[in-house]
């Protein structure tokens, strides 16, 4: 379980996260447009950026966690460049540091269509964007950590690999926090809890299946599932029959296109 209380992150006087309060227990989606602060949120939970507020992982304050394998793993690529090694040697290194059998990671990579031969030839940052994403996601999932943070794990994956990864995520026994801007995940993971994030503010949680069927209306609706602010306007997600579903937007970037009259 991960608890966040009034978490703020600023870069050069710009507030990227503005007082995020959330509890990630079990499997959760964090859905938001590009630039909304999703990746920064995962970086803050992983300890990679300075933050204000409180973050607790498995009831432990983040700043006090040291050398504890098995409680949290993330798929951010920069978290896995510890030494200049081939991607395969790097897997061996992290298998050792996370007390995981290398074969487990290789099996997940095989599922995601990444060959051992390729990993032996290239360094992690020399892999293509899609392969690199699959590579770090496989390390995170193979860790078996109680909490796995996945930043846009489906991005740049082909449809076949997306489907295989979705199966792996459903089967994962620990908690998962999955960041994405793509709305199809609401239907694919309809039982998961979902937070929306816009302009550094988190809203929710709401069950993903309900959001998938919800309609987006401008302004404050009565009895909404969720109300959020974006581009200076208020939007509501409501359970009504008429209107277009959130999933028809494909990505949440579309909210801004609507705001400017697209």
């Amino acid at each position: 379980m991960i608890e966040l209380e009034n978490v703020e992150v600023s870069f050069k006087h710009a507030n990227v996260l503005k007082g995020v309060t959330a509890v990630f227990d079990g499997k959760c989606l964090v859905l938001g447009p590009n630039g909304s602060g999703k990746t920064t949120l995962l970086k803050a939970i992983s300890g990679l950026v300075p933050y204000r507020g409180r973050i607790r992982v498995e009831n432990l304050p983040l700043e006090r966690i040291q050398g504890l394998s098995g409680i949290l793993a993330v798929n951010l690529p920069e978290a896995y460049i510890l030494v200049s090694l081939s991607a395969l040697e790097n897997l061996r290194l992290f298998a050792d540091l996370m007390d995981v059998h290398l074969d487990r990671t290789l099996a997940i990579l095989d599922e995601l269509g990444v060959s051992r031969e390729l990993l032996a030839k290239r360094k992690p940052w020399e892999l293509s964007a899609g392969t690199r994403k699959a590579y770090t996601t496989a390390i995170a999932l193979a860790s078996g950590a109680r909490n796995v943070l996945l930043d846009e794990p489906f991005e740049q994956l082909d449809p076949a690999r997306k489907a295989r990864l979705a199966e792996l995520l459903r089967a994962y026994e620990g908690a998962v926090v999955l960041n994405t801007h793509e709305t199809w995940v609401l239907k694919a993971f309809d039982r998961w809890q979902c937070y929306l994030i816009f302009e550094g503010v988190a809203y929710g949680p709401v069950e993903a299946g309900k959001l998938a069927a919800a309609k987006l209306v401008k302004g404050e609706a009565s009895r909404p599932l969720l109300t959020f602010q974006a581009a200076g306007s208020t939007y509501s997600l409501v359970e009504v029959d008429e209107g277009s579903e959130l999933t028809s937007m494909v990505t949440l970037d579309r909210v801004y296109e609507l705001a400017i009259g697209g």
Binding site: I65, L68, A73, E78, Y80, D99
Partner: peptide, 12 residues
Amino acid sequence: AAVTYATKFTKL
């Protein structure tokens, strides 16, 4: 970044 992460969430 990797050092920060590894020293928190691995046995290193």
